[in-house]
Write a protein that binds this DNA or RNA. Structure first.
Lengths: 340, 340
DNA sequence: TTGTACGCGTTATCAC
DNA sequence: GTGATAACGCGTACAA
């Protein structure tokens, strides 16, 4: 590949001059500039960002470490971060932990060896003390932004998270506001911290409204369409007087909707359905819906904002983003109140 | 940060010795190795992959350029590529084109400046001649693997794609095999090349079986759940004698399913539903289903395989992956035959 | 088994 | 305005 040196020789000037021209330094004559630029273009010069970075000690490299992107929730997050990073002139490494601590450590070490200037991390959930690699991040003073609900040991890092409890409560309040009093909750696996947060939001919503909590209305139903479907069938069988339904995510909600419909339950007159929109984004799930939108995209933007400040020497910062309620768009189809 | 030099000084050896130790060179004594290693560990040495790369002229960097990840289809692809790349010791840059040619060019130039050794690209669709940046890739001889259906100008690059026509035909054949003769097709927007391919597969499936093509059975219905729902309602109204339904994707299929159920249509006795699984992955959409699985994950693996060969100087290679039919898992819920 | 000299491609610094 | 020199951190080649 063409180097500054090659251009310099053909132009009859020094390497330094070429370097300055290509960075548009102020102390080079217009004549030289245009001559050298033309030559660089003609010779197909491609700058060598790594070499430049070695010299300037600024790599403009960031790393994004996530469990895996089977979960499309991350898509919007990645998208937002990449987009802002790009605008700021950073390149983004993508790496997966697959939820394995050893892999997480390996991945982070490799990114450190690449001299990333900052890291976005969704840590592998684990109990106990600060893992060595995280201690390392602190020791090296690597700007790090933790995304989402995080283990205790992340307290010293910057963090952005959605207010999942608040968002779920808002859904519950919405359903209560529509007059529903018997709201079934499809709870998902309890190990998931976010599922727990959503259930907690449901509890608080009821409590705030003085509605009694009835644990027969809580269905431990997993998190898939099929799980939701089964819960829907069960719901019909049990005759608990349920008039509304809140799912831990949108798949469960859709499954339950199918389950209810398959049993001849009329919707939406009889039942309102709500759930977090993990899989179906607002654009994709264009069912008419009252949406409580969880700000996944804004989450990414906020994360990059914090990173930007950290890179400029700012202090760690923690933010919790609130969800927002969007109005229902139409009533043509069954109402699925989805919390994106 | 600690450099080889620092370790060398404290260990009382030369930089070269330290360098060799850390790369586990064979010509260093065991004693020196353990002493230097211990010191490196103690001092918290982090290797500098960029500097090493500058010297060895091997960056072990790859770039993945996609339109944007709002479309979760890419998730599995990214996942597979990143995973294989990681195993082979490569780091992966992620960049979005947002479907804009200018942004695509900018993104690719920046990755070239990073000295990526190879590129995976989903090109921005455009008509006409080879865009300058792609000519550049050829000139620079950058190993490039084009993913998916690609514009004509990509003929000279390696490529992996799914056989969308064949996959869709397989779904149709499956439905025909179940005895259905009147299969509605929810066609999606015709601008999408993949939607066209899927419709074409449907046509061929019918033709092979000698079943007449009836364009009243084709519904131009968009690609969302709501679109599917509307199509489902329309379907019931029109009484076309439809007994099975094939959607251009899974959202449409689910929407249509809801539409049918909402009208009291009995499923699956009356109707079989099929669609491409763009949004709901096999793991998420655990409705009992006969699945025609499109190998998104395998697509990524194949792409990395080809890349691997290219990096070793192999010739360009084109592969088309076939879909595979998976058996139905259960009959508890409505059958949604999803093509993942 | 260990060390020396040099170069990878670029930029900071400062002299001309 | 322009250029000589050194350095960023590391590895190749070869000498000791």
């Amino acid at each position: 590949m063409v180097r500054l040196k090659d251009i310099a020789e053909r132009a009859g000037v020094s390497i330094m001059t070429v370097s300055k021209v290509l960075r548009d330094a102020p102390d080079i004559s217009g004549a030289t500039k245009s001559r050298v630029r033309a030559l660089a273009q003609e010779m197909g010069y491609v700058p060598h960002a790594l070499a430049a970075g070695l010299r300037t000690r600024a790599t403009r490299l960031l790393g994004l470490v996530i469990p895996g992107i089977i979960n499309p929730v991350y898509a919007r997050l990645i998208m937002a971060i990449e987009d802002r990073a790009f605008e700021l002139g950073f390149e983004l490494f993508l790496a997966h932990t697959l939820e394995k601590p050893e892999r997480e450590e390996l991945v982070l070490r490799r990114l450190l060896a690449r001299r990333v200037e900052g890291l976005f991390v969704i840590p592998v959930a684990r109990l106990g003390d600060t893992p060595g690699i995280y201690a390392e991040l602190i020791r090296l003073n690597i700007p790090t932004v933790v995304l989402g609900l995080a283990p205790r040991f992340c307290d010293r890092f910057s963090r952005v998270a959605n207010d999942e409890v608040g968002a779920s409560r808002e859904i519950t309040q919405h359903l209560l506001g529509l007059g529903h009093r018997r709201i079934a909750f499809l709870a998902g696996p309890t190990v998931s911290p976010s599922a727990q947060a959503r259930l907690e939001g449901y509890r608080r919503g009821l409590r705030d409204a003085g509605v009694e909590f009835d644990d027969r209305l809580i269905f431990q139903c997993g998190s898939t369409v099929e799980d939701g479907f089964q819960a829907g069938l069960e719901l019909v069988r049990e005759s608990l007087g349920v008039t509304a339904l809140q799912g831990v995510n949108d798949l469960v909600a859709i499954g339950a909707l199918n389950g209810l419909l398959s049993q001849g339950v009329r919707v939406p007159e009889d039942v309102s359905i709500a759930g977090f929109g993990n899989i179906l984004s607002a654009e994709n799930a264009r069912v008419p819906l009252t949406t409580v939108r969880e700000p996944k995209f804004r989450l990414g933007i906020a994360a990059m904002e914090i990173m930007h400040k950290l890179l400029q020497g700012g202090p760690p910062e923690q933010r919790v983003l609130r969800a927002e309620l969007l109005p229902r768009r139409s009533t043509a189809a069954p109402a699925v109140n989805t919390l994106i």
